[in-house]
Amino acid sequence: MTIDPEHLRMAEALLFASREPLDEAALAERLPDGADIGALLATLQDSYKARGVNLVRLAGKWCFLTAPDLAWLLEMERETTRKLSRAALETLAIIAYHQPVTRAEIEEIRGVGLSRGTMDVLFDAGWIRPRGRRRTPGRPVTYGVTEEFLIHFGLDDIKDLPGFDEMKAAGLLNLEPGSIFADLATTEEDPIIDEEEEEY
């Protein structure tokens, strides 16, 4: 099927001007009837793959980002006013790799109690959300990561999270006894399996 050059220009303009990543449905709403959205995106992605900006898919949506090898050009030295605490980072990692997960399960994996402030920081960042209630006694709330989490960390799907071997090779794992990652190797095969849960 031949791509209409005008449709291509329109899709390019929409993606360039949008402040947020756009999904295919949003593009289809704004483009003329009959526009082949998949073909347009594939063409644009190919056209921009060797340029200063690339068309990438994040969390199932599309946006232009600076080419990874040119990111250093845009780096700015600035004072960071707020960093995630170790507790928040560990909690986020547990939720990402074990979702849907309850508060009690997070505490069991970390080996310490979870303060309300730690969860609040992750909620404020927009990186976690309630997933529903587990169908077990007490019906505890389960948590998972959000679309904002995927976009912030440059992931299209939660399955794109690095595995044990990748993180170990990059030196990102603390495998000392008691570390939350010490047993990741045993759970890598199915780190993200939705258990039966009930939405609110």
Score class of each variant (00 low, 15 high):
4 D>L: 06
7 H>V: 02
12 E>M: 12
14 L>E: 08
15 L>H: 02
17 A>G: 10
20 E>K: 09
21 P>M: 08
42 A>E: 07
53 V>A: 09
53 V>E: 08
58 L>Y: 04
59 A>T: 01
66 T>N: 09
69 D>N: 13
70 L>T: 15
74 L>H: 14
75 E>V: 15
77 E>F: 12
83 K>M: 13
83 K>V: 14
84 L>Y: 00
87 A>T: 14
87 A>P: 10
87 A>E: 12
88 A>H: 08
88 A>T: 03
89 L>P: 11
90 E>H: 08
94 I>Y: 03
96 A>L: 03
96 A>P: 02
96 A>T: 04
101 V>F: 01
102 T>F: 02
103 R>F: 10
104 A>V: 15
107 E>K: 02
107 E>P: 04
112 V>E: 03
116 R>K: 13
117 G>L: 10
118 T>E: 03
122 L>Q: 04
126 G>Q: 03
127 W>G: 05
132 G>F: 04
133 R>Y: 14
133 R>T: 15
134 R>D: 15
140 P>W: 12
143 Y>T: 12
144 G>E: 09
145 V>Q: 09
146 T>N: 10
149 F>V: 11
151 I>F: 11
152 H>C: 10
153 F>D: 06
155 L>A: 13
156 D>H: 09
157 D>E: 07
158 I>S: 00
159 K>I: 10
160 D>R: 02
165 D>C: 00
171 G>T: 08
173 L>M: 01
176 E>R: 07
178 G>D: 07
182 A>D: 02
186 T>C: 00
190 D>H: 15
190 D>M: 12
190 D>R: 14
195 E>N: 02
197 E>Y: 11
199 E>N: 03
200 Y>L: 03
